[in-house]
């Protein structure tokens, strides 16, 4: 029991749809109380992994244990202790906010009295008290999302699965949601989150994996990942014309190595990865390169992500 056995344990976890391999033999563990993230571009296998964890998609190969149980034989028992926030809302849109909570509680076999008490708390948690008697259909995207999260908590789950919880929300709605998720974390609810927002991952996740093309390509805390896969600073250089930028890129790739920086030319700017941003800027401009704008910033998870998963669009 020391440290507790992991809530989720996956070894060589694989999901195939016909010939297509959606998840290709990944290993990970999620421990009680932590918030664990799956980052990756669209089609990387995040949602397929989440569906397997949610026991709504049978695994094709490997081992998966959730709450110490096997989804193949204990699916309903596992699901009774999970809360699931799917990528697309599955609310009963013809019903009221209140009825959505009641019906969902009944799916878990809760009594009406239990549900009444719990639903009242959850409406406050989701800041939807005033909309309790309204139909769901006309609610805003942020409200529907909060209701979906409230609904997923009706059974007091030990493990909350959130598949892209804030996609499509405006900044206010996102921040409110993050604050609520952080509160749940403090209450000890273990969370697994998929996202392709780096700021979301940095805000919420204690530990995360980056998935690309059905595999895990990196794992660690946000800080560890930045230390391991990016430099401390990034310098962004912009130029007025393409010709100027091309010339600068050529000059830099010949000399910037001397300034301790790695050069990555992009269509609209040149990135220099370096341990010392200001020193690199001085070295570069001293070499006669004249950018129209210079930005020195700290590396973020986004730099790690783009370096590991590439910059090309993957639209299947």
């Amino acid at each position: 029991m020391q440290g507790g056995s992991p809530l989720i344990h996956a070894r060589s976890l694989t999901k195939r749809f016909g010939d297509f391999v959606a998840v290709d033999g990944i290993d990970f563990e999620v421990h009680r109380g932590e918030t664990f993230g799956f980052l990756g571009p669209n089609g990387a296998g995040k949602s397929s992994t989440m569906r397997m964890i949610g026991c709504v998609s049978p695994i094709s190969a490997g081992t998966l244990r959730i709450l110490g149980m096997d989804p193949v034989t204990d699916g309903p028992a596992i699901r009774s202790r999970l809360g699931v926030v799917p990528q697309e809302d599955t609310l009963d849109t013809e019903l009221t906010v209140w009825d959505n909570l009641v019906i969902y509680g009944r799916y878990f076999g809760l009594t009406r009295a239990e549900i009444r008490e719990r639903a009242t708390e959850l409406l406050a948690f989701a800041r939807l008290e005033e909309r309790a008697r309204d139909r769901v259909d006309p609610l805003s995207g942020g409200m529907k999302r909060r209701l979906t999260i409230a609904r997923a908590l009706i059974n007091r789950p030990e493990l909350l699965l959130l598949d892209e919880p804030t996609t499509g929300l405006d900044p206010q709605a996102r921040h409110l949601l993050w604050e609520r998720l952080y509160r749940l974390k403090r209450e000890g609810v273990t969370q697994v989150i998929t996202t392709h927002y780096m700021d979301e991952a940095e805000q919420l996740c204690d530990r995360l994996v980056i998935m690309d093309r059905a595999r895990i390509v990196a794992e660690g805390s946000p800080r560890q990942l930045i230390e391991r896969h990016a430099t401390r600073d990034v310098v962004e250089l912009r130029f007025t014309t393409h010709d100027e930028q091309d010339a600068a890129a050529e000059a830099l790739s010949a000399t910037a190595g001397g300034a301790g920086a790695e050069v990555e030319p992009l269509p609209d700017r040149i990135l220099l990865y370096t341990g010392d941003g200001d020193g690199t800027v001085a070295a570069v401009t001293g070499n006669g390169v004249q950018p129209s704008s210079v930005l020195v910033r700290r590396s973020t998870l986004e730099d790690v992500f783009l370096r590991l998963t590439g910059r090309t669009l993957e639209d299947e």
Binding site: V56, P76, S80, P86, T93, Y104
Partner: peptide, 14 residues
């Protein structure tokens, strides 16, 4: 369309 059944199978229901 509304995907309510998907919400149902995420609970103990099959």
């Amino acid at each position: 369309w509304i995907r309510t059944y998907h919400g149902m199978v995420a609970t103990p229901l099959s």
